[in-house]
Design a protein around this nucleic acid. Structure first.
Lengths: 230, 230
DNA sequence: ATCTGTGAAGTCCTTCACAGCC
DNA sequence: GGCTGTGAAGGACTTCACAGAT
């Protein structure tokens, strides 16, 4: 039983963050008709080390066979279960600007355990218009969505100015998981989980490494110059 | 001098990843006319602990005043310098589907040190069409972009099937920093840096925590039922 | 008196390396 | 022989708590 508790409660955050990658790699393997895989192969497909992969999987239980490897379908099922993807999670996207419309059109949701039940916008002139096959609904529908559609996850795709207001409304309606695409920090109660996606941040991290690389080349050139001067 | 080396080389990855958030918070403060800030206040604005903030900033140098705090403009400048944002980095976006077009329209690039110099697509029927004020260019333009525009960063916004091919072309043209929005692992040389943004992964992480929460409620209900039964 | 900058301690995560099992 | 699962070692990051500066 203590092992069970460990398997259910004790998965480190860093491991959880990698499980979707393993699941995706397993799905690819399954599509290519491969039914068995070693930790070395799966790790390569997911872009991690095999030791890390095995340690991560050990937190879920013992689903491999020593001397053989893992059965692809079985492992995919176990990871799906651990992530809670055996059920479909209802998702609402708030903010129908360029990004919101791109997200609404993204086909990856349905295939990965999510169901976009509503597109919302604060702007009355957008409400009622169509995005793909869906109609844009007003923010006032949030309460009903949580009650009737068991809406659990909200995606914020608004500009930064509106994001906190949208978050407040989501929380008030009972949503406790938020994916935030707006470039700002959200203030929410402790029991609400927020994850942030920010492409400017990612580009700035890349810029840091680019600059460091360039700086090193400059230093190398300088030292060559120095040697010539001597 | 050894302090200089530490400041240039030794910034931990975890710190670098938070610097953009500090920069954003500082920009907000500056816009609101605030010229001085304590580590406690800035940390709250950026959503981290003050100890973490101070430790992060200590890797850049000593730009605060004990007993007083940090000057907003000065600190923003120092962080910009550390991140390499005193110059504008030329960026190309590859893949003009829904996501690529949303990225092309995103105004946050220009204001944060980046310059979108080209929109590219592999599909000949898209090449030549306009996205915003820009014309979509063919992949064959990549070499010229790297040579003439000093293109340094490539953004991949294609479907997963094409992403590896696009990455190969970017690398062949000399791009060594890639931001990948496609849900797949890219195989690149070790000196090429890839960062990945994947909304499905983020949603799955949220689902894990939602499920864990629900699971706990179920257990709580069970134990209540148990007590009632006893 | 106040707030920064930082060694030291503590926590979390990764890697190693091998026992255990097929 | 080959591969998984895992304690133990190692490394990275965070938090503590206080010396040092104004």
């Amino acid at each position: 039983m203590s092992a069970d508790v460990a398997a259910r409660r004790g998965i480190p955050d860093a491991s959880v963050a990698r499980l979707p990658g393993y699941l995706q790699a397993l799905t690819n393997l399954a599509e290519r008709g491969i039914s068995s895989v070693s930790s070395e192969e799966l790790a390569a497909a997911a872009g991690v080390s095999s030791a890390k992969l095995r340690k991560d999987l050990s937190h879920l239980g013992s689903y491999g066979v020593r001397g053989v490897g893992y059965e692809v379908d079985r492992l995919a099922y176990e990871i799906s279960t651990a992530l809670g993807l055996t059920q479909d999670w209802p998702v609402a996207i708030v903010g129908m600007g360029n990004l919101g419309r791109a997200l609404a059109a993204y086909s990856g949701f349905a295939t990965r355990g999510f169901n976009v039940v509503a597109l919302l916008d604060h702007d009355d002139s957008l409400v009622g218009t169509s995005v793909g096959k869906r109609r844009v609904r007003p923010m006032a529908d949030l309460d009903a969505l949580v009650r009737e559609d068991r809406l659990a996850i909200g995606v914020i795709a608004t500009p930064a100015d509106s994001a906190q207001d949208v978050a407040d409304r989501l929380v008030a309606a009972g949503v406790r998981s938020i994916l935030n695409f707006a470039p700002c920090v959200l203030d929410v109660p402790v029991d609400v989980m927020v994850r942030k996606v920010d492409m400017s941040t990612e580009l700035q991290i890349l810029a840091f490494h680019e600059q460091r690389r360039t700086g090193e080349l400059d230093l190398a050139e300088q030292s060559v110059v120095g040697e010539v001067a001597l």
